[in-house]
Design a protein around this nucleic acid. Structure first.
Lengths: 164, 164
DNA sequence: TTGATTGCAAACCGTTTGCAACGCC
DNA sequence: GGCGTTGCAAACGGTTTGCAATCAA
């Protein structure tokens, strides 16, 4: 499924969700969805807010937060809190058609990488059964330092694809 | 290693750390350490602040935060951000003599359970190698619903041992 | 028309900070 | 005695909320 059709599918899903819930199909909501699905990074609310201001539908911060919550409710975005320091703000990513994955957070350059490991599924099942717990979702974050060449470069101020 | 000797060890470690760093061995710091090591739950700063006010050394919020940071620096407490809702505050737990573990967070009763799974270590190693990443630490949180009898009871307002 | 949604700014809440008083070294 | 630490309250930053204006239904 390529990019544009992924957005089409997301848009259809949002439309269906809004109608089902009796919510309005405002242009702001679809504009935000479009921006979210044009991105491949883990952005925060402020970054999304600023990105929207270069677009046809600049929106307020309140609408950004409200809409992100709507998109989360209907499974179109995932929200993360990559703690481990004083970085307190939430980060978001599109979720349609992407399986849940773990994250690597570099404590130097703050870039985020993703990974999948099938063994995690076994852990969820084993632990859930052993501790009488019905697991809905999970968050696995590995903190450390990326050892590829971009990292040092980033610390000196150059830009790259998936900052923080 | 039983409880009191665990605190003794922690106290010795803190003392050593403070001296090494040229920091002062204030009574507040040791009082907070004592409270932290008398607990077996995942508490937040506010809970610790209130707990200290029943003790010989009531301390200010500023001191709570400052000291928790000191204890974290010397490896005596771990800090967590159990997101997945609007719960934005950090939670802490003693760490001396306890290996890193995963957490199960019940979305109903907000209780936190712990678990260890050796397979997680393999994931860290595999992923770290594959993605050129030196893993320092990790956070694995499973969200869902605990199915034991306490859960419903808690939702009706009764108290228990490890309220989130 | 009309009630949900938006935008703005003020409120909120966990956490941090500035500064005077305190107390360990 | 000097300077790190504490306590207080005010500031901070991300997020939420109240309310009037707007707009989809």
């Amino acid at each position: 499924m390529q990019d544009s059709s992924l957005f089409d599918t997301a848009q259809a899903k949002l439309e269906k969700y809004l109608i089902a819930k009796g919510l309005r199909r405002s242009s702001e909501r679809f504009a935000i969805l479009k921006e979210v699905y044009s991105r491949d990074d883990h952005f925060d609310a402020e970054e999304l807010y600023h990105a929207m201001h270069g677009k046809a539908y600049p929106v307020s911060r309140a609408t950004v937060y409200n809409t992100l919550e709507v998109l989360r409710d209907c499974g179109l975005v995932r929200k993360h809190q990559f703690g481990e320091d004083d970085n307190i703000k939430s980060r978001y990513e599109k979720s349609l058609g992407r399986q849940q994955h773990g994250h690597l957070v570099c404590l130097n350059c703050h870039r985020v990488k993703e990974f999948c490991d099938p063994r995690l599924q076994f852990i969820k099942t084993t632990v859930g059964t052993a501790l009488h717990f019905e697991v809905d979702s999970h968050s696995l974050v590995l903190y450390g330092e990326c050892t590829d060449e971009h990292c040092e470069a980033r610390m000196l101020g150059s830009v790259s694809d998936d900052m923080d």
